[in-house]
């Protein structure tokens, strides 16, 4: 119980990872902006990205599409968590050193 209280963010991160694991179930339909672009004839204006790392949320080199999506989702979720945690931690250290 004490661990749950102190390490609540681990549970939060696990819940985010569960959502990432479910991501192959996402609706395949185009999103709102894509739909509008398609219906009103400006979808072809979209330019390819200058480089491709993990395009379409499919981790490269994985044959199985669901597995590629899950891997991309898990990598992204962990990466975002680490990045945001680190950035917030740095900002908090600066808060303390200001002594206000």
């Amino acid at each position: 119980m004490d661990l749950v209280k102190k390490r609540w963010w681990i549970i939060g991160l696990l819940l985010a990872l569960i959502v990432a694991f479910l991501s192959p179930l996402a609706s395949p339909h185009p999103d709102g902006l894509e739909r509008v672009a398609e219906d009103h004839g400006f979808l072809e204006r979209a330019r390819e990205a200058p480089y491709q790392l993990i395009p379409d949320y499919l981790f490269p080199g994985i044959e199985n599409e669901a597995a590629a999506t899950i891997t991309a989702g898990v990598v992204g979720t962990l990466l975002i968590f680490g990045l945001m945690y680190g950035l917030a931690w740095v900002l908090r250290q600066r808060t303390q050193s200001h002594g206000s």
């Binding site: 339909h29 185009p30 999103d31 962990l78």
Partner: peptide
């Protein structure tokens, strides 16, 4: 406690943005 909460919120929003849901007429949102 806002430091880990920022991390968890960002991670959850990223994952949830992958979960498109169908709305109408072959369109989805997230």
């Amino acid at each position: 406690r806002q430091v880990p909460l920022m991390g968890v919120t960002a991670a959850f929003i990223f994952a949830a943005q992958m979960m498109n849901f169908t709305v109408a007429g072959g369109t989805s949102g997230h």
